[in-house]
């Protein structure tokens, strides 16, 4: 079975934020601190994973016209649950993230993978796809949060990194800094993908030549 491929390819080659340009808004607006990036990433991963399960199980019951609306209701219900849990467990960070917790429900990533993938695919690939998409988003958010917080504020998860109030680059915590960093990450991802594709191409070409020689 190759179902785990749906998980691995979503992390680098089809990363939801860096390649598919979905969910740029939370990725830029929330990652001013690493902890809020981590919280929102976990929330999105949970909502995505939990709501793709009923969506794929009920795909034969829901009539074609009501698919979008019923998926929206499923996603909204899980987002509400996640918000309640986060408020009781991590009240301070949830307050910081603010309106982006409710906005998980209209996040392009969640909607595209629930509405586009779950309704046409069996259970196991859907679960792997949900997990992979969420993990790809979570990794981007944590990476951006760590870089932006350590450069802009001189702290990491609230602990100060340098002596005194030194900051390397206060620009990093502003909104343009977030866009800038996201663009650099997307370019890096594109570069890595191109290199790996070239390597694979070379490998297959070499194999073919060897086959020719041996035949």
């Amino acid at each position: 079975m190759n179902d785990h491929k749906f998980f691995t390819k979503k992390i680098l080659t089809e990363n939801p934020v860096l390649v598919m340009t979905a969910g740029i808004c939370p990725a830029v607006a929330v990652t001013e601190s690493a902890s809020s990036g981590l919280l929102l990433g976990c929330g999105t991963l949970l909502v995505l994973f939990l709501s793709s399960l009923p969506a794929t199980l009920m795909k034969n019951i829901i009539p074609e016209k009501a698919v979008c609306a019923s998926h929206m209701i499923i996603i909204a219900a899980f987002t509400a649950v996640i918000q309640m849990i986060f408020y009781s467990w991590f009240p301070q960070v949830t307050e910081e993230v603010g309106i982006f917790i409710p906005l998980i429900a209209v996040n392009c990533i969640v909607i595209e993978s629930v509405n586009g993938f779950a309704r046409n695919n069996p259970v196991l690939p859907t679960l792997f796809n949900g997990l992979g998409t969420g993990t790809g988003f979570l990794l981007v958010l944590i990476l951006m949060g760590i870089i932006r917080e350590s450069m802009g504020e001189g702290t990491l998860f609230g602990y100060s990194l340098f002596a005194g109030d030194m900051t390397l680059m206060p620009f990093a915590v502003l909104l343009p800094g977030g866009f800038f960093l996201l663009s650099l990450l997307a370019a890096l991802n594109k570069h890595i993908n191109r290199k790996t594709r070239q390597k694979e191409k070379n490998m297959t070409n070499n194999d073919r030549e060897e086959e020719k020689i041996s035949s």
């Binding site: 340009t21 740029i24 800038f180 996201l182 663009s183 650099l184 997307a186 370019a187 890096l188 594109k190």
Partner: peptide, 11 residues
């Protein structure tokens, strides 16, 4: 080459 497309738009 690496910046063509989406990275350039975000920049």
């Amino acid at each position: 080459e690496a910046f063509r497309g989406i990275p350039a738009y975000i920049m």
